[in-house]
């Protein structure tokens, strides 16, 4: 029990710190002097620079899901349902979550390490001295960038995953692109696409805010930078799953399933 108390306290402490940090973000997100250029630079770094990784992940995801589900579907004589099944799985759940986890690993750790190193090298303090609002310049721009870029990355990932699925379907059978697209579109409804798209904004926000919080509040020198990057990935990944659970509950409650 004595061992568990500090960890329990640590979790609460982390949650409290994150809540305060989030509050600080909302106090600063629409403050005057918008750092537009920095925002676009962050969008480029976070969004564009992650496309390759996300595209490869998405492609393999669609390919593997189709290959893995084929034997089971074939056993039930339902191979023609593979496009529908894979499309629903990818767009509703797997595409957003996997892409968010990839982003948590790449972007969350990057932000945590970058801000952590700036913190420990007292660059943030120097910005404050120079009259620049470091929170607005560093945190608000990054959080906005992740919030807006992760959904775009998920769209790209989903699209490429469905292409991967089309390739996998054609590896053993022959299905025209028109028929495949028709089956995908037929199987999807707005209640599949829109809630999945909306929750990716929350995933992006969680990745950005956790990365920035961990980096912005890091300490203990260079050791703290690594710790910040590591804990940012862990916490962002965990938050992605928690948010996914909440999203599933909300969509279920609203009858959007």
């Amino acid at each position: 029990m004595k061992l568990q108390f500090p960890s329990y306290r640590l979790i609460l402490e982390e949650l409290g710190g994150l809540a305060r940090f989030t509050g600080q973000f909302f106090r600063n997100w629409a403050a005057p002097r918008m750092e537009i250029q920095e925002f676009f630079r962050q969008c480029y770094m976070i969004g564009y620079r992650s496309v390759g990784l996300v595209a490869i992940t998405g492609f393999i995801l669609g390919l593997v899901m189709t290959i893995q589900s084929r034997p089971t579907m074939a056993r039930f004589g339902a191979e023609s349902w593979i496009p529908s099944m894979v499309a629903i799985s990818i767009i509703r759940e797997i595409g957003p979550v996997i892409t968010a986890l990839i982003c948590a690993g790449k972007i969350g750790s990057g932000i945590g390490a970058e801000l952590g190193s700036m913190k420990v090298t007292e660059q943030i303090d120097a910005m404050e001295v120079s009259g620049t609002n470091p929170f607005k310049y560093l945190v608000v721009t990054r959080v906005w960038a992740t919030t807006l870029m992760v959904p775009v990355l998920v769209c790209c990932s989903d699209t490429i995953a469905i292409w991967g699925s089309y390739l996998a379907v054609n590896m053993k059978n022959e299905t025209s692109l028109a028929l495949f697209s028709q089956q995908v579109v037929d199987s999807l409804s707005f209640s599949d696409v829109l809630p999945a798209f909306i929750k990716t904004f929350f995933f992006g926000f969680a990745i950005g805010i956790v990365g920035c919080y961990k980096g912005y509040t890091s300490s203990k020198g260079t050791e703290g930078v690594g710790l910040a990057a590591n804990s940012a990935v862990v916490m962002a990944s965990l938050l992605v799953f928690v948010l996914d659970l909440l999203a599933a509950q909300v969509t279920d409650t609203l009858g959007l399933n």
């Binding site: 630079r41 969008c43 790209c156 999807l188 696409v193």
Partner: peptide
Amino acid sequence: RTPQNIKLGIFVLLGLASLVTLLYFMGAQK
């Protein structure tokens, strides 16, 4: 930074275009 912004614009356009296309075809289907 201009080339970066252009690349970013293309990336965002492609991402949103895929979403809009999907939604359009779903809407046309219904």
